[in-house]
Design a protein around this nucleic acid. Structure first.
Length: 503
DNA sequence: CGCCTTTGACCTGCGC
DNA sequence: GCGCAGGTCAAAGGCG
């Protein structure tokens, strides 16, 4: 199944768009560096540029160190939390054992059944990141049991994709045909319901949540029983990820194949909303809605629902991973705080221009990839009620989001080779191809562009120190985000190594 | 010929 | 119960 193949017209458009992009974006950088009126000072400028670049390198290096420190801090925190959790569970377990007859389970086992069950709960709450960097075996047990796949536990934990696992058959197929670089993203979206979903903790969101056809919806008898399906549908409706990006084309090419099945004029927006269904696999439940922003027609709002039931091409995995991670963060937030609170990482603008926020009545993550100084700074109400409040976020440089998103896409060998034109406006790498001049706006200098592009897949550019502190606070105050971030970082490092190995 | 888009009709959920 | 809006279906037509 070669799902990565784009339809010819699209490819042509993208190639053209990219060429245009190069033409459009290159000159400003050159002009800023060598103004035609000051050619005499070319050498001086060169020296200055060199100095500036050196200074930037120094800054980046410092920031790198800072991030390393931060990472080690995260790991320490995680381990202490882990230990704390285990102690708590042990205490709980001893209490339970005291209550029950002494004939039941011995307490000294590393992972006795009750412990394993409790670990399930924990991992579910922490968005499937449990196995990663986990010193003990509990998470590994959970991981292997949840995936039933053949990959190593770590691989599984590193995955952050939308690939759902409907069945063993699907698993096998997925494991077998998954591109090595895609690294099998799976971030379990079931976390949201960990409390009341214990009966089927590993039920993928998409399977029951988005029946392939409305007929299945109308006759909800297949598979799960009615009540369970209802619960799952509700969960699924919670996992919506909206992506705002500057995009001139009718749709954002996210690597998947979509078939349009409807279009509707929605209230409050003169632009029609288009409904697409994933056609990579006939039974894939994933749908997306595409609509232009009423405030700024150049902004394309793409909302994803559900998880793919098939292997994804790396290009699609990039987007899927990101949306999945965002959805998972959202679900993590909703699992820890009941209603209507902004997620910590959202309120701090941790993803930089990619802002994430939600309201409980219709939890939608909005990844805002438009420029920090664009219209997004106005209060923006998405069609689904999510508020991408760029103005209330301490937006980070776009490069931060590049750094965050690139691991899923930019670091993949897929992008680095002949498929480059096809990626067009792919998420992540798409940041560079989607009118960077608009994306970064006049407030971002060419040196900034250079920095973000030079940093690229090697790592996120340095946020301002104050923002770093904010990030650190957000990270240290939200265990679930720690988990997600840890998984993301590990995924990033893994992919980076993989990409390097391919060269 | 097969796949895709278009588009009007229909279904469903929600607020009043 | 009614109306509205969002979401989906499916027939018809276009395109490669």
């Amino acid at each position: 199944m070669d799902v990565a193949v784009e339809r010819p017209p699209l490819v042509k458009e993208e190639k053209k768009a990219e060429t245009m992009m190069e033409i459009r974006t290159t000159p400003p950088i050159v002009f800023e560096s060598f103004p035609s009126t000051q050619r005499v000072d070319a050498t001086t400028n060169k020296d200055e540029k060199l100095e500036a670049t050196k200074a930037e390198m120094g800054e980046v290096r410092e920031e790198n160190e800072r991030l390393k420190t931060l990472l080690s801090h995260i790991v320490r925190d995680y381990q202490s939390l882990q230990m704390h959790f285990q102690e708590t569970v042990k205490v709980k377990q001893q209490a339970a054992a005291a209550d029950k007859l002494p004939a039941v389970a011995p307490v000294e086992a590393d992972v006795p059944p009750p412990m394993a069950a409790a670990a399930d709960d924990l991992v579910s709450l922490s968005l499937g990141s449990g196995g990663y960097a986990r010193p003990k075996g509990a998470a590994h047990e959970r991981t292997s049991s949840s995936s039933s796949g053949t990959e190593t536990d770590q691989d599984d934990q590193l995955s952050l994709g939308l690939s759902s696992r409907h069945s063993n058959e699907g698993d096998d197929r997925q494991q077998a045909s998954r591109p090595s670089a895609a690294a099998a993203p799976l971030l379990n979206l079931s976390s949201d319901s960990s409390a009341d979903d214990a009966a089927q903790p590993r039920q993928p969101l998409s399977t029951a949540a988005f029946p392939p056809t409305s007929k299945a919806r109308k006759s909800p008898s297949a598979g799960v029983d009615g009540a369970d399906e209802e619960v799952l549908q509700q969960q699924a409706k919670k996992a919506r990820v909206s992506v705002r990006v500057k995009c001139d084309t009718p749709t954002m090419n996210d690597g998947c194949q979509w078939r349009k099945y409807g279009q509707k004029i929605s209230k409050g927006n003169p632009c029609p909303r288009a409904y697409y269904r994933c056609t990579v696999a006939p039974s894939c439940p994933v749908r997306k809605q595409v609509q232009r922003c009423a405030d700024d027609m150049s902004i394309l709002i793409t909302t994803y629902e559900g998880t793919h039931s098939h292997p994804l091409p790396p290009a699609a995995a990039a987007m899927a991973s990101t949306t999945s991670a965002a959805a998972s963060m959202l679900l993590a937030g909703s699992s820890s705080s009941s209603h209507g609170h902004h997620l910590p990482f959202a309120s701090t603008g941790l993803l930089g221009p990619t802002t994430i926020s939600t309201i409980a009545s219709c939890p939608t993550v909005t990844l805002d990839l438009t420029a920090p100084h664009s219209l997004m700074q106005q209060q923006y109400a998405s069609p689904y009620g999510a508020v991408a409040a760029g103005y209330e976020s301490k937006a980070l440089p776009a490069a931060w989001s590049n750094g965050y998103l690139a691991p899923y896409g930019g670091g993949l060998p897929y992008y680095g080779k002949s498929s480059l034109p096809a990626m067009g406006q792919h998420f992540g790498m798409g940041m560079a191809t989607t009118r960077p001049d608009q994306l970064y706006g006049a407030a971002h200098s060419s040196s900034y562009l250079q920095r973000s592009s030079s940093v690229g897949v090697h790592g996120p550019a340095a946020p301002a120190p104050a923002v770093t502190d904010t990030i650190a606070k957000a990270i240290t105050s939200d265990p679930s985000f720690q988990s997600v971030l840890a998984a993301a970082i590990t995924s990033y490092m893994g992919r980076g190594a993989g990409a390097a190995a391919q060269k």
